[in-house]
Design a protein around this nucleic acid. Sequence first.
DNA 1: AGTAGCAGCGTATACGTTTACAATTGATTG
DNA 2: CAATCAATTGTAAACGTATACGCTGCTACT
Lengths: 341, 341
Amino acid sequence: MSDVSIKEVARLADVSIATVSRCINNPEKVTEKTRLKVQDAICQTGYSPNTLAQSFRRGRTNIVMVVLPSIGDPFFTAVMSGIHVAARAKGYSVLIEETEFNKMTADEIGAMLVSNQTDGIILVASTSPFGNEVLSAKNNRRLPIVIGCETVSPELADFPSVHIDNIAAAKEATNYLISQGHKRIAMVCGQSSSLLTKDREFGYRAAMRHAELSIEDGWVVDGDLTIAGARKATRNLMNHGNKPTAIFCANDEMAIGCLHEIKSAGLQVPRDISIVGFDDIRYAEVTDPPLTTISQPAEEIGERVMYRLCRQIETGNGAAGSPEIVPHKLVIRRSVAKPAS
Amino acid sequence: MSDVSIKEVARLADVSIATVSRCINNPEKVTEKTRLKVQDAICQTGYSPNTLAQSFRRGRTNIVMVVLPSIGDPFFTAVMSGIHVAARAKGYSVLIEETEFNKMTADEIGAMLVSNQTDGIILVASTSPFGNEVLSAKNNRRLPIVIGCETVSPELADFPSVHIDNIAAAKEATNYLISQGHKRIAMVCGQSSSLLTKDREFGYRAAMRHAELSIEDGWVVDGDLTIAGARKATRNLMNHGNKPTAIFCANDEMAIGCLHEIKSAGLQVPRDISIVGFDDIRYAEVTDPPLTTISQPAEEIGERVMYRLCRQIETGNGAAGSPEIVPHKLVIRRSVAKPAS
DNA sequence: AGTAGCAGCGTATACGTTTACAATTGATTG
DNA sequence: CAATCAATTGTAAACGTATACGCTGCTACT
C-alpha cells in the first residue's frame, strides 16, 4: 500500500492528477463535487502524498536544524522544548545536531551544513565553531539562520538572535555576592571557545572592577561546562593560596559539581563557601542547599527563536539584525550567606 | 551559487550528466582522467548535489526519527547521545519528536508517521501511544522500527528492541531494600500508560510477594515521571496511615523529587526514610545523599538501537524479533539505611 | 585478421509532485 | 441564439538526480 501515487487516485476519481493535487493544496480552486469524488478516491486508496517528492518539487522540507553544544544539559533541552512547541505549531520538524561543546572539527561542521536538507538553522550557543564557515554557508545556500542564547560576535552581527543580557546578568550575580559582603569571589566558567561564558566572565570582571575588588591569578578557572569539569576546577580553587569565599559558576551544571565537590571536602555551603549558578535548570531548586542562580526563560527563548526563523523562512528575509533581549532574573535561594572570615 | 546543478558541471567538464553522477557515486566506473576533469569542474562551480533531489530519486533521506516521552529527562538524553554517535558514524541525521509523556493524541501521532520523510523510527519508551497505530503504519509504509528501553507488548512482539530486564532490575532494587530490613516499602511509578514503569511495578510487586510482604492500599502512587509529580506523590505517602520506611522510585527524576520533598518535611534520608531510584542519571551521584539506584547503560542502548535500525534499513528486514537485553546494575550509594522502627 | 568481450561513456527515462498555460465547460448577456 | 466571460479542469513541462540500456572503441584471444 505504500506505492500508491497521485496517479492512482486520479485514475480512480476519473480526473487529472492536477486536479487531485489542487484538491489537496488549493481546495478552493475546485468544485465541491469533484473534491468529494477525489476525497473518496483518496480514502479508498489510502493515498498520502510522497513527502520526498513534495519537498523536492517545492524546494522546502519543513525541517529545521538546531545545533547545540550538548543535549545533556537541562538548560539546552528546555530551550529545545520551546523550539519544539513552536515548531509543531508551525508544522516543522526539528533535526538535532550537537557539537559536543564545540569540539567538532570544521570539516564535520561543513559536512553538516552542506548535506543539509533543512529550511533553516538555529544555533543555540553554538556560533563559535562556525564563525566564517557560517558566513560562507550563508553565501552558498542563503539558508536562514537564527542565533539563540548567545550574543552575536561582530562578524555575525547581521544574524537575528534572541538571548538575555548575559553581561548584565553576570554583573547582577556578582554584585549580589558583593552585597552580601564577599570580597574574594572566584569564577568557574566554560571553555574559552564558548562565547556565552565569555560574556558572563566579562560581566563578572566588570562587577569586580567596579567594586574595586581584585581577582587573584587562578580564581578564574575553566569548568568545561560539565559537572566533572567543575569538580576538578573547584578542587583547584580550594587549594588556592588565597581561598575565595564565594564562587560564581557560569552555569548550574557546574554549580552542582562545585557544590558537591565542596561538600565532599567536608565543607558546608553556604556556611564556608557561597555559590551562585546560572540558568536555573530544574535541578537548581532541589539541590541541597537550593541554588541561588540567574533564571533565564529557556522555553520562551526557544519559542521566539523558532518563530523568528519561521518568519525568515517564509518571508525570504525576515528582519535581520536587532537582537531580541529577553529578561533574566536573579533567583535567591539558599546557597549564599555572608562570609565567615 | 546555490542553484548550480549537475548539468552545469557536465557542461563545464564536457561530459554527460550521467558521468558526473558516476564520478560522485561510483568513481570506480569511470576513468581516472575524466574523474579528475569532473572533479575540477565541481570545484570550479562549487557544486554540491541537491540533497532533496537525491532523496527523492533514491527514496532515502538518511534521516531517522526518534520518538521519546521527554527530551528533558537526563536518562533519555543520554540514550539520545548514544543514538547520535551511532547515527553520525553511519551517516544519518536524527529528527526528534517528543510525546510529552505519551500525552499526544492519536491524531498527532498519526500525522507524525504519515508526514514522515524518514528512513526509520526509533521508539524510546514510547510504544504505548502507538499500539495499533504503529502496526497500521508498518503496513502503510513498511518503515523499519526499533524499540528502545521498553519491553515490547505482545502485539508488537515482532519488532526488534533493546532494553534492560526491567522486571529483574526492579526486583533487585526491591530485594535490596528488603535485605536491609525494610518491610514497609512503597513505590512511586509513572503514569499507567507507561509500559516501562509497568514492568518496574511488576518487578516490585513480585519481590514483595516473594518476601511475603504486603503492599498497603495507597503505597503505589503515580509520580508522573517528573520531579513535581513525585513531590506530590511523596506528600501523599507521608500522610499515609501506615507510613513506609522506604520508597522505590521508577526513575531518578522522581527519586530526586521524592528526596527533596522528604527533606522539606524536615525528615532525613536515609535515617528516616530510604530511597532507591532507577536509571542512574548523572545527577544521581551529586544529590545529598547520593542516590542508590539501578544503572542502565543508556548510551550503549542508544547506540545499539541505532545500529539495529541501520541494519534493518539497509538489509530491508534485519532480523526482527529477539529482544536484545543489556545488563543493568544496582549502584549502592547512600540513600538507603536500615529502618529505624 | 577477425571477433568476442568489455570498459567507458552518452542517451533517455523515470521518480511524484506542482503549476503555467491551454482547453473545455457552463453561465450570462446582448 | 450567439457571443463573451469566468470558472473549472486537463495537458505538459519542470524540478535534479540515478540508472538501464545501447553505442563506441579498445584489448585480447583464436
